[in-house]
Design a protein around this nucleic acid. Structure first.
Lengths: 140, 140
DNA sequence: CCCCATTTGTCCGTATGTATC
DNA sequence: CGATACATACGGACAAATGGG
């Protein structure tokens, strides 16, 4: 559980991997706060920069969300609702622009779905809570 | 076009926004190099940290790609090829973990498509070059 | 309202490593 | 080879936001 400064893998990657494991295992549950930066520097015996880079990595993966003056919390995976991809349409997943992120109020590390309808209209939706489906063809 | 340290929005966000605008407007074309970190600290009169975080943000958005010892370049939008979403399957877009990014050899800021097939098997593909389609239902 | 402790944001100095040209 | 540029990592310092009393 400790960090090896002489390893060829950077310290901040080691810490990011470790925290990710704690998140994915549920030890750090959604909504829960990560230890503060100061706490993490002590726990792992490393500098603050390495800690911040580790957390930054997790942010860009959409796993956590940081608020200045408050801390970093595990993002709760929103209820995924299913949505049918309309016939004759197509979809592309990409990261939002700054404007899109503001308008859709998205955290860092959340991709969007750009759906092109048969009509030619394109629709942009947060990719986080959406599971796109295509029904099977076993209709009566 | 300068930075306001007293603004409630962090400096690195302001710089990221500004650079993003320059990229989206085409002033910084695909393949073109951004100014070096040292250059940007001078231009905006800010610290390394803010510059590096700004560039890190753009990387996590898939807008630029950094090569050590060389610099940061604007990424060119990849050729998109179409792929049909199989009947009875579903798909979720999310950011890859560090491990997945290494295995798939993805740049930062590239989402992945997690496709769940009718059989139950799940398949992971880079979301960047893929346009998922569902054909229209105009069969005889 | 203010005060205060906590926490993240930002800057600076320094150092070493590594990749590119 | 050297010059340049980014990556990683530590230390210290102060600013600014948050939340509780």
């Amino acid at each position: 559980m400790t960090v090896d400064p002489r390893s060829h893998t950077p310290v901040y990657v080691q810490v990011a991997d470790f925290l990710r494991t704690r998140i994915e295992s549920g030890e750090l549950a959604p909504g829960e706060s990560l230890p503060s930066e100061a706490r993490l520097t002590q726990e792992y015996g490393i500098g603050r920069e390495a800690v911040r880079m580790a957390i930054s990595t997790l942010r860009s993966e959409g796993l956590v969300s940081t608020v200045r003056g408050h801390g970093t919390r595990v993002r709760s995976t929103p209820e995924r609702h299913q949505m049918e991809l309309p016939a004759g349409s197509s979809v592309v997943a990409r990261m939002p622009t700054g404007r899109e992120r503001t308008e859709l109020q998205l955290d860092e590390g959340v991709p969007i779905l750009e759906i092109r309808h048969r009509t030619g209209k394109t629709e942009v939706k947060p990719g986080d809570p959406i599971e796109l489906t295509r029904p099977g063809e076993d209709k009566p």
